[in-house]
Design a protein around this nucleic acid. Structure first.
Length: 745
DNA sequence: ATGCATGAGTA
DNA sequence: ACTCATGCATA
């Protein structure tokens, strides 16, 4: 299953209330006004991966705090402590299934996730962004190991029994439903730029899954998780995870705390065995837009499911029907908890049974209707004719493809699982014909999501969802190799002409490199200019830039680079030369128009924290320096201990330096955490977003911008390093005794 | 060793 | 306004 997390990047707007509020003090958690005030000042950032950020920053720390304070971490979830965006999964890691009241609380995150709860020193630092990414976007979702939570899930086929839920508080989810990543909070701004009063929670799974935020009624549990019809995450079982809707919820504005502060029953409910089944739509001239407003579905337990939150107004002349419906809903509320919009509560048994229904008269008349459209029962005597007569009006598979319902995605019409008739309805006549027509219909539930007409032409989007697309998969969790290729490909970097020569040895072409450069050409002496088009001049440069890192010679090139860096460090130290001295010495040598290099640069070279191209360019220079140094050292021992003439120069203008000394902004830990969280969400914020971020953190915008630039740069460097290290792992070089230690790192 | 910053080149 | 190479300042 593919979750297109890279789709529609602007779809999910995330509030930073969780982050900026931060719950850095316990008191913040319980002071709604304070929280609200912070929320009001929050900024937005468009992202498709906001879930990571949310999970990371706030969700865990309270859980950890609880874990630290309250013993067994598996039982430490406390509503009063858990922030709204607390994600059970992130903190719920247990190495072994932990029995708890006879149930097991799994971690749901897989073995690659750290046991965060064991980190008790700093709950903030315990959560790394990378880990969270791993958990939410890749691991949990892709491996579908999220058999979390402990719910009193009735056995398959057992009707939804309210009792079994009301007695059991705590997080619940259906086994196959990944709850993590749903605690995304969206602030919707109206035209005047103010947050609207309703809080929309949306899934964070990206465009591949229906954007629930188009629905205006969502809810989350006391942990801030959103419970929805998440059956999209189940490939083989349609299960519905839902939760009780606090009727006041949408009135609570965006203050999530207010929502959670309400101590009424917010216990999430699961109805794990209710599957939405196709329904028969018997009217001719069915208008799909109308159908999309249907709120009635057939549930697998043989009941008619009534979707909560009937939002649309019924047509004129339907007031009576509407009132009747509302009465019915009200009466049902007493028995069944209200559910969110994408969930369905049992309303009454499905019409086709002859006993125990409100529609015992088997006719072909209206069974239920919404939006003036009629839904007729499946009178056994009519099956044949009906199917024949109305087939053309049924929703054809091709028409269904633009539905946004997951069931459809998971179950193409031709592959629909057969309806397992509950035993209570086993006396249903002509059940096989029932199958027949629902097979031809598709899924009514498939239309319940269509609220915006614009959705109707997106079949390709959903077709894609059903297909495991390798490319998309890469988008979601690109291997570092992929990233590396992107980041360091010649197309994305310095424009490099066809330098297909292999890496040059110190005694080879590289020695000609310096001499071929225009000494006054550029401050960046080796920035290649692709106006130098002919191969000869390119070759003369001798800069061993890889044009195809993953072509014929990638590993050898990378390995050579890595090995040289290690070896260089070894030999430099053996010579007793510091990094700074190397940098200065380069200025004295006739190595191109390089002036000095800084200690930083030498250090980064040795630690492989330069870009790939940068490494490749510096290598021959350092090679040359090393060569000469060792020659001098062998001919005149003690040479390297001579004073450095540049030191005096540097010291001479020390007074001036102090005056023009650059001030260095110091970014505090909390600020950094926030920035990192933002970065996880959106590594390339727009200018506006930068401004908001800066505002929120109270840093200068320029500082934030630079930070992001540096962070991106750093990320690439780290990828570079990671790649080289990995290369070393798989292609160990012949390491000598003298350099094996450094190469190990 | 690394964070924050700068400036040239570039899109 | 970004990328990239690089340096100052500092942990």
């Amino acid at each position: 299953m593919v979750l297109e997390t890279n789709q529609s990047p602007s779809k999910f707007a995330v509030t930073y209330c969780q982050l900026s509020a931060g719950f850095q003090k316990d008191s913040d958690l319980h002071e709604n006004s304070k929280f609200k005030e912070k929320c009001m000042n929050d900024t937005l950032l468009s992202t498709e991966r906001s879930v990571n950020f949310l999970n990371c920053q706030v969700a865990n720390m309270e859980g950890l705090r609880n874990a630290d304070q309250k013993g067994p971490r598996a039982s430490t979830y406390d509503i009063s402590y858990s922030g709204p965006v607390m994600t059970v999964m992130n903190v719920n890691r247990v190495d072994q299934p932990m029995p708890m009241n006879g149930r097991f609380l799994g971690d749901g995150t897989g073995s690659s996730v750290r046991n965060y709860a064991s980190v008790d020193s700093d709950p903030y630092s315990a959560i790394s962004m990378l880990d969270c990414v791993k958990m939410t976007n890749q691991h949990a979702l892709h491996s579908r190991v999220s058999t979390i939570a402990y719910s009193d899930q009735p056995a398959a086929g057992t009707p939804w029994n309210l009792e079994s839920y009301s007695s059991n508080r705590g997080p619940k989810s259906s086994p196959e439903v990944t709850v993590m990543g749903t605690n995304l909070c969206e602030l919707v701004y109206n035209d005047s730029g103010n947050p609207q009063t309703s809080l929309n929670l949306t899934t964070a799974f990206g465009g591949g899954i229906h954007d629930y935020s188009t629905e205006n009624a969502s809810t989350c549990d006391e942990y801030g998780r959103l419970y929805r019809l998440e059956s999209a995450l189940c490939e083989d079982q349609c299960r519905i995870s839902t939760s009780r809707l606090n009727s006041d919820y949408t009135q609570k504005t965006h203050n999530r705390k207010a929502c959670f502060a309400n101590t009424s029953d917010l216990t999430p409910k699961a109805c794990p065995n209710i599957t939405i089944l196709p329904w028969c739509w018997r009217d001719s001239n069915v208008q799909l837009p109308s159908l999309s407003y249907t709120r009635r579905v057939a549930l697998s337990d043989g009941y008619l499911g009534n979707q909560s939150q009937l939002l649309e107004m019924e047509e004129d002349g339907e007031e009576q029907e509407k009132m009747r419906m509302e009465e019915k809903v009200e009466s049902m509320e007493a028995s069944y908890p209200p559910t969110e919009q994408n969930a369905y509560r049992q309303l009454c048994p499905l019409p086709w049974p002859t006993n125990g229904t409100d529609y015992s008269k088997i006719t072909n008349t209206v069974v239920e209707g919404t939006n003036t459209q009629s839904m007729r029962n499946s009178s056994p005597t009519m099956i044949g004719d009906v199917c024949k007569d109305y087939e053309s009006s049924f929703c054809q598979p091709s028409q269904c493809t633009y539905s946004t319902n997951f069931h459809h995605l998971k179950y193409p019409i031709e592959n629909q699982p057969k309806c397992s008739s509950p035993s209570a309805y086993s006396n249903q006549l002509n059940f096989s014909s029932h199958e027949t027509w629902y097979h031809s219909l598709g899924l009514l539930s498939a239309f319940t999501q269509i609220l915006a007409p614009s959705h109707c032409n997106h079949s390709s989007r959903f077709e894609r969802d059903t297909t495991v697309d390798a490319a998309e998969h890469e988008n979601i969790c690109p291997t570092s190799e992929d990233q590396f290729r992107d980041d360091f490909s010649p197309l994305s970097q310095i424009k490099v002409k066809s330098h297909h020569h292999s890496f040059v040895s110190p005694s080879g072409g590289s020695s000609t490199w310096a001499g071929s450069l225009d000494m006054n050409h550029s401050v960046h002496p080796y920035r290649l200019d692709d106006k130098q088009d002919d191969d000869q001049s390119g070759s003369d440069l001798g800069v061993p830039l890889c044009t195809d890192l993953f072509g014929n010679l990638p590993d050898s090139t990378l390995e050579e680079l890595r090995h040289f860096a290690c070896m260089f460090k070894q030999r430099r130290m053996k010579l007793g030369v510091t990094q700074a001295e190397v940098g200065r010495a380069l200025g004295r040598m006739q190595l191109g128009q390089f002036g000095c290099l800084s200690q930083s640069t030498i250090c980064r070279f040795e630690s492989l924290t330069l870009s790939h191209n940068n490494m490749l360019v510096l290598k021959p220079i350092l090679e040359k320096w090393l060569e000469q140094m060792e020659m001098c050292a062998s001919s005149s021992p003690g040479y390297t201990e001579l004073g450095d003439p540049f030191d005096a120069i540097n010291q001479s203008d020390g007074v001036l330096e102090s005056e023009r000394r650059r001030r260095r902004t110091s970014i505090t830990e909390p600020e950094k955490r926030m920035l990192e969280a933002y970065f996880q969400v959106e590594p390339k914020p727009t200018s506006e977003e930068l401004g908001r971020i800066a505002n929120g953190i109270r840093l200068r915008k320029s500082v934030v911008r630079v930070w992001f630039c540096n962070q991106r740069q750093k990320q690439k460097r780290m990828q570079m390093k990671q790649h080289l290290s990995r290369g070393a792992q798989f292609h160990p070089s012949p390491i000598t005794d003298t350099n094996m230690h450094c190469c190990g790192e």
